[in-house]
Amino acid sequence: MSETIKVPTMAEYMAQGKQPEVLFWVGCAGSFDDRAKKITKAFVKLLNRANVEFAVLGTEESCTGDPAKRSGNEFLFQMQAVTNIEVLNAYEVKKIVTACPHCFNTIKNEYPELGGNYEVMHHTQFLKTLLDEGRLTIEGGKFKGKRITFHDPCYLGRANNVYEAPRELIQKLEAELVEMKNCRRNGLCCGAGGAQMFKEPEKGDKDVNVERTEQALDVKPEIIAAGCPFCNTMMTDGVKAKEKESDVAVMDIAELIANAQDL
């Protein structure tokens, strides 16, 4: 069904002498990780459905440098940042949307000082404005009455105080939003941040993602909703570790909405 998606690049827009409304920053996970690619596509389908004129950088995109910075490699981070900013500024990008809270945080907060000033939105915020403006409609249907719990990504929630946009979207699905013991500003990390995604955890008596998954399973959800490709991986692994994958699905908010539309 993927044959119908339209994914123009900035270069193509430029060649036509046009500017898209928004740049979709796909991110490394969204580009390469098999699970995250599905989220990317779901979001693109929604953008197509809402007739949003967007573009991606495609092969001109590079890692924002987030995992390098949080590992302590400030040189590598700033090299990545400056390179990306050069590309973005050359295309005169004004507005960026991304489905990754790490890219969101880095571009929004850490790029301005290095010369990159853009309006940056998380995809849940962007989808919410599309709904508010009537450019996209959601039918509950499929998810009506389903128990869904939302796992706050650290880099969206605590790091940037975005708590409501993803929740409002879940409610628009007429689903039953149930909150975990630790939610919003008290949300428990999935264990991936600070470059932990790329290494084995230190010695301990449990993995963080299992702890968080247990908190989620405590509220007996049918779906664990995520808003970050890394959280998604961690929670999916957690659900597998608890052998609940046949009862509980881990889905990105964009996937939920695209699914509700039968996209």
Binding site: T9, C28, G30, S31, F32
Partner: peptide, 15 residues
């Protein structure tokens, strides 16, 4: 340009 060993030229392959 990615934390995994994928080629930057393949960044849009998902499409």
């Amino acid at each position: 340009g990615a934390p995994w060993p994928y080629n930057q030229m393949d960044r849009l392959n998902w499409k």
